[in-house]
Design a protein around this nucleic acid. Structure first.
Lengths: 349, 349
DNA sequence: ATAATTTTCGTGTGCGGACACGAAAATAAT
DNA sequence: ATTATTTTCGTGTCCGCACACGAAAATTAT
């Protein structure tokens, strides 16, 4: 119940004017060493905390935060959730003289990524939130930001060894490990497991790490499961036919899809009338959710994409305005979803 | 990028002084109907949003929010988490002239509950966050708050039919249903399941609803499982012996503990060297976590207690200061925890 | 010693909004 | 028509902080 002291109070305690205290707080010089130390001591003693409201109100500086994430559309709306989180955070802190400008790129085009990075640099932002899909370009960009002393945060995936303020995302290895663990609960010994990568293009870093996690778990239970990696390209009839054949085998009891397209497998299972296999997938795409509720998908593993966006912006805010320190590695929880609990994740912000 | 208009701007648009606009905004009268309507129209048109920072800074009113939750100690630290969330929210909004005062009661004593309610009423708070453990006393209290037009929020458990601003907690029925579902993944057909209530005292509302959910699931799979309810009082040697006997039976394959004391069962299983049964429990007590990591507990179901406290205070803040509307029923996600993902929940705020 | 320069410091203004107070305008009373 | 009363409205101050400007003090140069 002790009221927070103000600059004016500290000035009185130190026997100086508010302006002098202000100069000490902002390291603006023009203060004798004696006064400076004394004021710092008092600030320490009374645990002075500036009033953020007053500070932001008086501060004319307008912070610009930009975000760069893959775009989204009806076919692929994974990045809608982070975008939503970014927007929510932006609304919440707009009174603090912070504007957030969102950029998007085509996640299959390095060119679009580079183009946006260039535009962003020209804006001279005060902070950047970034999905570092392309490695080399990100490294180059990060170095330029370092030179300008602009903080940046990665979301969804990470690149080690850079000077980013924070990383917000999941531990992919561990989420693969967990997927295998969940499968093992309900899959009898000596059966086969398929590890499926869908899409025709090469797997993302995330998918690779997940598969490593799966391998790691399965290798800890030697001899219990036989597992095979399959690439499925649903556009390619041959690939699809091959997959249908594989999945129809009786000893196949479990399937893990290591990217977000588990619904493709569920669709095939549905068409073939297969119902006795456990399917585990990732991410809350509408079609995944549908099959989870219908029981064709046993578990979905989710990574709080909305929160990644929200916390990303809030972390930059905390760093720039509140000046509190930010955790460098901020692994988000690995949520396990079933038909029974998913509704409470969907409605919940 | 359009800058927010200020009262001063609106005054100019309406051809009046800022004071007049202010009077309209606060319904303080002293304005001709003609001016009032005109100003309201302009406010609507330009979508005026008052600057919360400036508003709070200028506002001398000090809001008092009180919370009343069960106390906690080394033996029973469940309520430590909500308390932590309350404290975190309080810190975050302290600049907005909001002070949060925390009250505690003994969850086994109606008397202590009533005593604290009385004290709270005498403080004339502007908002109340409450764990409504005792039904009748809460109803009485709620009515008094209604008369004073003081908003109140329930956390952890709910009482229907009251005028509370919001409820923050879990759908206990559904979390029971989910527990049974999880058990069914790994428990073979025709085996026995124990539903255990621990503690010697009567079960909480929450435990009762969970058991209903369990029943509901199991009754949907007729004939598949045999299940028995057992009361276990670990202080009572006879009760403990009886339980040990039951759990040693070979056909018992699964156990669900419907309150937060699953670790008691795990301890017994440990002592008896039993390792081939699936045990599911609730809540992240340290001892539960320990056994989850060791594999004696298969799943823990958690309800984000920290977030209940945090969101409870933030909802009151939003209602009192931001004046945004608050969802009445705010079921928190039902988190499924295993040894593989729990660390990411523990570190995470 | 005095002037010129540099350093140190206090005061004042504004950020956007809340509220008080007193002036001006409108209405009522004589 | 004049005064008294009520209603309407504008101005000013403060909230806590950031920053500018100019005055005072200390230092250096002459």
């Amino acid at each position: 119940m002790i009221k927070n002291l103000r600059i004016k109070d500290i000035a009185k305690l130190a026997g100086v004017s508010p302006g002098t205290v202000d100069r000490v707080i902002h390291n603006r010089g023009q203060v004798t060493e004696e006064n400076r130390l004394n004021i710092l001591k008092i600030i320490e003693e009374v645990n002075y905390k500036p009033n953020l409201l007053a500070r932001s109100l008086a501060n004319k500086k307008n912070y610009l935060i930009v975000s760069l994430c893959p775009g989204f559309n009806l076919q692929n709306d994974y990045w809608k959730a982070p975008d939503h989180g970014i927007e929510r955070a932006a609304r919440e802190i707009s009174d603090y003289n912070i504007s957030v400008k969102r950029f998007y790129f085509d996640q299959f085009s390095v060119q679009s990524f580079k183009k946006q990075l260039k535009e962003i640099l020209e804006l001279n932002p005060d902070g950047v939130l970034l999905s570092p899909v392309f490695r080399e370009e990100t490294i180059d960009f990060a170095q330029k930001l370092d030179e300008k002393q602009v903080p940046y945060i990665f979301i969804d995936s990470n690149i080690d060894g850079l000077n980013n303020l924070s990383y917000l995302g999941q531990n992919s290895f561990q989420s693969g490990f967990l997927a295998a663990r969940l499968l093992s609960y309900s899959t009898p010994a000596d059966s086969s497991i398929l590890i499926v990568q869908i899409g025709g293009s090469e797997p993302s870093n995330q998918a690779i790490r997940r598969e490593e996690g799966i391998h790691n778990f399965l290798s800890q239970t030697p001899g219990k499961y036989y597992y095979t990696h399959i690439d499925l390209d649903t556009q390619n009839p041959k690939s699809k036919a091959n997959f249908s054949e594989q999945i129809s085998k009786g000893d196949v009891k479990g399937i893990i899809v290591i990217n977000s397209k588990a619904f493709e497998v569920a669709t095939i299972m549905n068409d073939l009338g297969i119902r006795d296999k456990n399917l585990i997938g990732y991410d809350l795409l509408p079609e995944n959710i549908k099959y989870l509720k219908e029981g064709l998908i046993s578990f979905l593993i989710a990574q709080r994409p909305e929160e990644q966006g929200y916390k990303g912006i809030m972390s930059l805010f905390n760093s720039l305005v509140v000046k509190s320190k930010v955790e460098k590695n901020n692994y988000l929880p690995i949520d396990i979803l079933t038909g029974e609990n998913i509704d409470y994740y969907l409605n919940y912000i």
